[in-house]
Design a protein around this nucleic acid. Structure first.
Length: 779
DNA sequence: ATACACGCGCTTTTT
DNA sequence: GCGCGTGTAT
């Protein structure tokens, strides 16, 4: 039993500088363990010490520990910090993201599930292309069912380990039936592409361990300890995986904070952490409540917000850092003035105590960054925008990657479709669909059809090069009839025009040559060959104007730098490794490292979601308004509202010393100007914690107060007193800034509030809106 | 096959 | 208010 281990001498330092609960968490070495770690409570420290303690003090072999995180960045940091204690032994700990660990596992065991080792990993854009095709194949109207939504449903199903069959069996409504059909076809297409999507990495790993006793027992025997970070963000598949890993020894330590669960829309299931004790009744629970990040005022304000949440495990953060400054509440006129306030306050802060890199401005939606950027440019404040178009999502980067993907796996139709006509080769949609139809007729993958065409073209234009024929005959052999050559004879003439056929044959030959070249050359050589063979630079400068083309070319150069890092590897492994890393490493990793790094000397502009896990001496949270935070899309769902609350909590707890909560009286969104009441979360913060700077709000009201009774009631900052007769009657035409035009169905008084039901044009359907928050405009 | 115009529909995005 | 995808004109 693991519990019989005695700490070795010399490892005491791993416990020495920890507070009592931290120490308990680190030194609990047997059985299930739930560590509820508040923000800034030294969570990573506890995990790394725990791992080091297992190895150093308990004598566990490092390769028998699996520690899993959500981001590569977190994994890297953890590896580094474990290495600080264990030196080289740290490299033997199985440490990585769920996805990377699974990818590696599947790569090794791929043959068991009839998968080629060279499978490609499809990212979001690839998945969209596949789901689109799947919907078309299933006769699903993409106008009516958006592929984004279909993919979301499929992804969610996979995250909950629901197979296409099971999904079809449980389909209770028409939409579910549609999804079931698309889901089934989608999986077929992935298989045909020799590809897995992100969800598959988890799903297939679970399936493989579940279905294969021998394999399961092998890994269960091996994994003496399982550690899961950010447990509140795990989905069903991930939790299942962790349980499978820990199935024999039951040493499973999970670390997380339900209050910081903000990714339910990505299938994270907060119940995993809330119900852990039900799944493991003998679990030891440790609360980390001492905070080493923020002042007490900030903690109290944040606690006041999160206390309004239902789905939580009570914990209350404290610090011995002292009260600190009050939280500042500022009410601006509009988003411009809001941004100007932030800019001028940033100037003031940096004059006294802080550097630009100490400051972050946070917002709910990316679109909000615009006004802030403009203000920062006006004020000449250097800033760094996190998010936006990511490096690996840039067109030029995706193009080159598609070439590399095709070299690794020519059956990858998504990659093929992306670059077969980039740069332009005169192969359009018509030609492609003809090609696909013909491939279907022959019942071969598109790639093979292409090879057949290449063979036929070769035979027509240059029938078997003499040198090859003579060489083979001299050696006493018949020239080998390759599969495409044989097929080419049987297939019959392809249906394409000669120009198209020649272009495709040329393309196919190029890929063949690149495949050949890649087998004995470095990655950067391969990449150079691709650039050269496609004249990609010229293509960029033809396609785009000077500065943009330069920038895109620079991105290609950057990609080459990344590829060159794999040059030391054996050519047979370099491409696989590179593509896998690229697929699994979001550049949020690299970018936020730069941005959070003090060297940047810039203010950080960042969404609340991306800010999780980061900390800054000064934090501005903007648009603290109903409709933005909480976001309007969460209004009709209590669970989503809870998540918005947690998001607010996450934002507030990023602040170390200074926290600003800013709202605007009026805000321009999507071309419309609207008034948003202050966020309900502001109301939860006790006034004594706040330094209010709202001298302006009342004046705005007076100015804005118009003839409409609606506007009058919206303009009130406190809970609006609604007239006790309904403000709208059925049949009135109204406009909502987000949902657009609609017709009032009904309006009823509910206590101090009114609920209006509106049928909106288009896909949104009927909506019930609380009138106190709904910015409806009569038409 | 490509070039532009029009209209539609809009959170968040660890892998 | 803007980007993207579809549709039509060259």
């Amino acid at each position: 039993m693991t519990s019989s281990y005695e700490p070795r001498t010399g490892a005491e330092h791993l416990l020495a500088d920890l507070n009592p609960p931290q120490r308990e968490a680190v030194a609990t070495i047997a059985g299930p363990l739930l560590i509820l770690a508040g923000p800034g409570s030294g969570k990573t420290r506890v995990i790394t010490h725990h791992i080091a303690y297992l190895v150093d003090a308990v004598g566990v072999a490092p390769w028998r520990i699996v520690a899993v995180t959500f981001t590569n960045k977190a994994a890297r940091e953890m590896r580094t910090r474990v290495a600080a204690h264990l030196a080289d032994a740290a490299n033997d700990v199985v440490l990585g993201t769920f996805h990377s660990i699974c990818a590696r596992f599947l790569r090794t065991e791929a043959e068991r599930i009839g998968l080629s080792r060279s499978f490609n990993i499809f990212d979001d854009a690839d998945q969209m292309a596949v789901v689109k095709r799947a919907a078309e194949d299933s006769n699903v109207d993409l106008k009516r069912y958006k592929e984004r939504m279909l993919l979301g449903s499929i992804s969610h199903a996979k995250s909950e380990l629901v197979s296409p069959d099971e999904y079809a069996r449980n389909a209770r409504d028409y939409y579910a039936e549609v999804v079931a059909r698309v889901y089934a076809r989608y999986d077929e297409l992935l298989a045909a592409n020799n590809a897995l999507d992100f969800d598959d990495l988890l799903l297939r790993a679970v399936e493989m361990l579940r279905d294969n006793t021998e394999l399961r027992e092998k890994y269960q025997e091996r994994f003496l300890h399982v550690v899961v970070d950010e447990f509140q963000d795990t989905n069903i598949a991930q939790y299942e995986l962790a349980k499978l890993w820990a199935g024999k020894h039951r040493n499973i330590a999970v670390v997380g904070d339900p209050d910081q669960s903000i990714y339910s829309w990505r299938s994270a299931d907060i119940r995993n952490i809330l119900n852990f004790e039900r799944d493991f009744p003998d679990a030891k629970v440790v609360l980390l409540e001492q905070n080493y990040r923020s002042t007490q005022n900030i903690l109290d304000a944040a606690h006041a917000v999160i206390a309004g949440s239902r789905q939580r495990k009570e914990k209350s953060l404290w610090t011995d850092a002292g009260e600190g400054e009050p939280v500042v509440l500022y009410e601006a006129y509009d988003e411009q003035e809001e941004a100007d306030f932030v800019a001028s306050e940033v100037q003031a802060l940096t004059r006294e105590e802080l550097r630009y890199s100490d400051i972050a401005v946070m917002y709910r939606t990316n679109a909000q960054s615009r006004a802030l950027e403009e203000a920062f440019i006006r004020a000449r404040i250097p800033y760094q925008l996190i998010g936006g178009t990511r490096f690996y999502e840039r067109r030029e980067v995706k193009d080159i990657l598609a070439y590399m993907r095709l070299v690794q796996n020519p059956y990858d139709q998504v990659a093929f479709g992306r670059i077969v006509n980039v740069p332009g080769r005169g192969v359009g949609a018509k030609t492609l669909s003809e090609l696909e139809r013909w491939a279907g007729q022959l019942d071969v993958p598109v790639w093979n059809a292409l090879q057949i065409i290449a063979e036929q073209e070769k035979a027509r234009t240059a029938p078997v090069p003499d040198n090859v024929r003579l060489f083979e005959e001299a050696a006493g052999r018949r020239p080998p009839a390759s599969l495409p050559a044989q097929l080419a004879q049987r297939a019959g003439k392809h249906p394409l025009g000669s120009r198209q056929a020649r272009a495709l044959a040329e393309f196919s030959r190029m890929v063949d040559e690149l495949v050949e070249l890649s087998s004995k050359n470095t990655l950067s050589t391969l990449l150079d060959a691709i650039l050269e063979r496609t004249a990609y630079r010229r293509y960029l400068f033809d396609e785009f104007d000077e500065p943009e083309a330069e920038e895109r070319w620079a991105n290609v150069g950057e990609l080459r730098n990344v590829a060159a890092e794999y040059d030391g590897l054996d050519p047979s492994r370099a491409l696989v490794a590179f593509l896998e890393d690229v697929a699994l490493i979001s550049d949020a990793d690299t970018i936020s490292e730069e941005a959070a790094g003090e060297a940047s000397g810039r203010v950080t502009l960042i969404t609340l979601h991306s800010a999780k896990g980061l900390e800054y001496p000064a934090v501005f949270m903007t648009a603290m308004e109903e409709g933005v935070l909480p976001h309007i899309r969460s209004f009709d769902d209590p669970a989503s509202l809870e998540e918005e609350r947690r998001l607010c909590y996450v934002g507030m707890t990023r602040a170390k010393r200074r926290l600003y909560l800013v709202r605007a009286f009026r805000r321009h969104t999507m071309g419309m100007s609207q008034h948003n009441p202050p966020s309900r979360f502001l109301r939860d913060i006790p006034p004594e914690l706040l330094a209010q700077r709202q001298h302006v709000a009342d004046e705005y009201e007076a100015v804005e107060r118009g003839p409409s009774r609606m506007r009058e009631s919206f303009a009130r900052d406190d809970r609006p007193t609604m007239p006790d007769t309904a403000l709208f009657t059925g049949g009135e035409r109204v406009r909502h800034p987000h949902f657009g035009e609609g017709i009032v169905v009904s309006c009823q008084v509910i206590g101090d509030d009114q609920e209006v039901t509106v049928a909106f044009k288009g896909a949104f359907g009927m909506k019930k809106l609380m009138l106190s928050f709904a910015p409806l405009e009569r038409l």
